[in-house]
């Protein structure tokens, strides 16, 4: 018992005051990319050719956040002159057209669907399905339940049964072998329901795009909230959910 009390005192109170106070991530962190439209077009084309995910449109100066895995190659190649990654972790969008961007898109809170705020703004129960996710998106979603993030204080919980859920939270590129289980889970959730796609894989197939063993999520279900990243930072997921459902 004494050990328990001693450890408790030493560990202290660790829950973050986000979103009341901002969090500054380490400068190395690669968050929202910013495109410089005034850059040498030849340099932009070189970045686009080298991009492992073919996520860059050099003519229009756009980057597809659905495909991007934030590897940082374009920033390194252009020495930050064409693309530079900021530490801004707010990446969620409600309109898939906005995934193709130059680093600027409207605030999520302003363009999310208002009826979801009414329905789920005070209490949101989600069923997570990992459909061939590599365990990064899963791990960084799970981490929201640790004391630092403490997701439950916002009235958001991940539940074990789809019958208890208000929505589906999908990670992974959706393997052929998980398609049926994913759709069964979706069907078991009572309507009205929300679908959240998390991570480059769920948004575009990610590293596995073009594999004959996967079925793109967008071909199966209508997605309401898109959260880019490979994997998205826990704060990216948290901020997207708070803005989409609460603000």
């Amino acid at each position: 018992m004494l050990k328990l009390i001693r450890t408790r005192i030493n560990q202290g109170y660790r829950t973050s005051s986000y979103p009341k106070k901002d969090i500054q991530l380490h400068e190395s962190y690669r968050g929202r990319p910013q495109i410089n439209h005034n850059c040498d077009p030849e340099l932009a084309r070189r970045c686009a050719t080298a991009c492992p995910q073919d996520a860059i449109d050099p003519e229009k100066g756009l980057i597809d956040l659905g495909r991007c895995v934030f590897c940082g190659l374009c920033e390194r190649l252009s020495e930050g002159k064409f693309i530079s990654f900021s530490t801004n972790f707010e990446l969620g969008v409600a309109d898939p057209a906005q995934l193709l961007c130059d680093g600027n898109f409207p605030d999520l809170a302003a363009h999310s669907k208002q009826h979801f705020k009414r329905l789920f703004g005070r209490s949101l129960q989600l069923r997570e399905v990992s459909a061939a996710g590599c365990n990064c998106c899963e791990a960084d979603t799970n981490v929201l339940n640790t004391p630092f993030f403490d997701l439950s204080r916002f009235g958001i919980d991940f539940v074990a049964s789809p019958r208890h859920a208000d929505g589906l939270f999908v990670t992974g590129p959706v393997s052929r072998n998980m398609k049926t289980a994913l759709l069964d889970t979706y069907d078991a959730i009572p309507s009205p329901k929300v679908v959240i796609a998390t991570g480059s894989c769920a948004l575009s197939g990610g590293p596995f795009r073009d594999s004959s063993e996967i079925v793109p999520l967008q071909d199966l279900l209508e997605v309401d909230l898109f959260i880019p990243g490979c994997p998205p930072h826990p704060l990216t997921i948290l901020s997207a959910m708070l803005k989409f459902f609460k603000l």
């Binding site: 380490h26 190395s28 895995v69 940082g72 990064c136």
Partner: peptide, 11 residues
């Protein structure tokens, strides 16, 4: 993240 810019060392 400090070492790589990503929480799982990617990149």
């Amino acid at each position: 993240v400090i070492l790589s810019g990503n929480r799982f060392g990617r990149g």
